[in-house]
Design a protein around this nucleic acid. Structure first.
Length: 430
RNA sequence: GCGGCUGUGGUGAAGUGGUUAACACAGCGGUUUGUGGUACCGCCACGCGCGAGUUCGAUUCUCGUCAGCCGCCCCA
């Protein structure tokens, strides 16, 4: 029979992995809370229209990377390829614009799906953490999201980072610029590479980003977005930059930075890992402001900002830059029955320890001492409890400290004493 | 979607058109059945990603396929 294996571009996270994820997720949750963001959980699949209208029909994500299917009632559904659209959808659906506490600050964390060729840092099922702030348009908030993301990077131990930032201007400025670009490049149609020809139609801003035509003369002379920014957009962007300066964030203004999703306006940014281990997919988190998204989804006119963070990518970098973060906490105690006849008694001791909140394990199969001690060493377990016939009869246990080899025989007070020893050692569980 | 590289046990890997697929680490057992980290000895791939073809015979050759990685593209 043919073997069944996991679908391409997906991953099984095994024990070592999930432990790392827990550590990472914990950092994320604590940080989000520190900045006063609340968690939102939206469905894994949504109506296909949400992404078509929200993310944009012509984007790569929507036009060729979505997992779309019909359910039994012929409704077109799509596995979510990103998080923002759903957040805004929920915001509208639950009338969160009416909440007492404004702006609405939320975060999400979970799997996303995109049909792409897998690569390091790029899977078909991957995970994003993201934040969204809806209901204010304020440069402080734009900056806050960046600072929040950087805070997480810092706690995870990432140092090789680059902050790229740009502005697309408000809708008015951007549309004006877009049209100019389209006009300008139309004169050079025969000199453009094939990719650029499609970009010209779909997303002219991306033309500036082309690696093939990068050095051509007409590229260098192309109109620059900053010339098209109106006073207001300009001021707004400057303030964002000022705040970053005050917060001691080194950034790089990248005039060619554009984003692949249609909803962005004004501030956009991308935080890139400069670590070589990151490979070609180096963007750790990226986002920006979106002014028209709520409206285009049938909601009120509200402004939002947010970013999406590639969790796998963060972990790839953290694993090389700060592996100490992931050293697992050992078990507190291991119980060694000296004879198979003692396993039930050993188990009752195990249970009593666990009920006291101590993390513990025992040997069920009557293995040799050698192998039991090896187990403890391998797993950095400090305390072993040895019990045999003699101890069963005398109602005692032997508590051995494997770090220094000492051991003590304990009688009726044993549970309290074990707890005390474990506490002093720095206990594993809560 | 396009181009390139790779695919041998739990891990790192060597290897050959033909009897038992090296070696190392890990694991397990023993020397040492009430006490560890050393040493010595033993065990551990019914199979060389999967499928088909060539051949008397393929892990080794050919084709296909799947998967991973690298790059393009795109993005988180």
């Amino acid at each position: 029979m043919a073997k069944i294996s996991r679908p391409r571009g997906t991953e099984d996270l095994l024990f070592e992995d999930t432990n790392k994820w827990h550590i990472f997720e914990e950092i994320i949750r604590k940080t989000a809370l520190k900045y006063n963001y609340q968690e939102i959980r939206t469905p894994i699949f949504e109506s296909t229209d949400l992404f078509r209208r929200g993310v944009g029909e012509t984007t790569d994500v929507v036009s060729k990377e979505m997992y779309t299917f019909n359910d039994k009632k012929e409704r077109s559904l799509t596995l979510r390829p990103e998080g923002t659209a759903a957040c805004v959808r929920a915001y509208i659906e639950h009338k969160m614009f009416g909440y007492d506490n404004q702006p609405v600050k939320m975060y999400y964390m979970g799997p996303m799906f995109r049909y792409e060729r897998p690569q390091k840092g790029r899977q078909r099922q991957f995970h994003q953490f993201g934040v969204e702030v809806l209901g204010v348009k304020s440069p402080q908030v734009d900056a806050e999201t960046i600072l929040l993301g950087l805070d997480i990077c810092k706690q995870v131990g990432l140092k090789n980072l680059k902050v790229l930032i740009n502005t697309l201007g408000d809708n008015e400025s951007r549309i004006k610029y877009r049209n100019h670009l389209q006009e300008y490049f139309s004169d050079y149609k025969d000199e453009l590479c094939s990719d650029c020809l499609t970009r010209l139609e779909k997303n002219p801003l991306r033309l500036l980003d082309c690696k093939v035509d990068h050095d051509k003369e007409f590229m260098k002379n192309a109109p620059v977005l900053s010339d098209f920014l109106n006073e207001e957009s300009n001021e707004y962007f400057k303030t964002v930059l000022d705040i970053l300066k005050i917060a001691d964030v080194e950034y790089e203004i990248d005039e060619r930075l554009v984003r692949g999703l249609d909803y962005y306006t004004d501030t956009i940014y991308e935080i890139v890992s400069t670590n070589k281990e990151s490979g070609a997919q180096a963007t750790l988190f990226g986002g920006g402001r979106y002014d028209g998204l709520s409206e285009s989804l049938g909601g009120p006119q509200v402004s939002g900002v947010g970013f999406g963070m590639g969790m796998e990518r963060m972990l790839i970098s953290a694993n090389v830059e700060n592996p100490e973060l992931f050293i697992p906490k050992p078990l507190d105690v291991f119980i060694m029955p000296l004879d198979e006849s003692i396993t039930t008694h050993a188990f009752s001791i195990l249970e009593r320890l666990r009920n006291k909140g101590i993390s513990a394990e025992m040997e069920y199969n009557g293995k040799s001492f050698k192998s039991m001690f090896k187990y403890c060493e391998r797993n950095n377990i400090r305390y072993a409890i040895l019990i045999g016939e003699t101890e069963l009869e005398s109602q005692t246990i032997i508590l051995k400290d494997l770090e220094n080899g000492t051991q003590e025989e304990l009688s009726h007070q044993w549970l309290e004493i074990v707890c005390e020893r474990v506490m002093n050692n720095g206990k594993n569980t809560q």
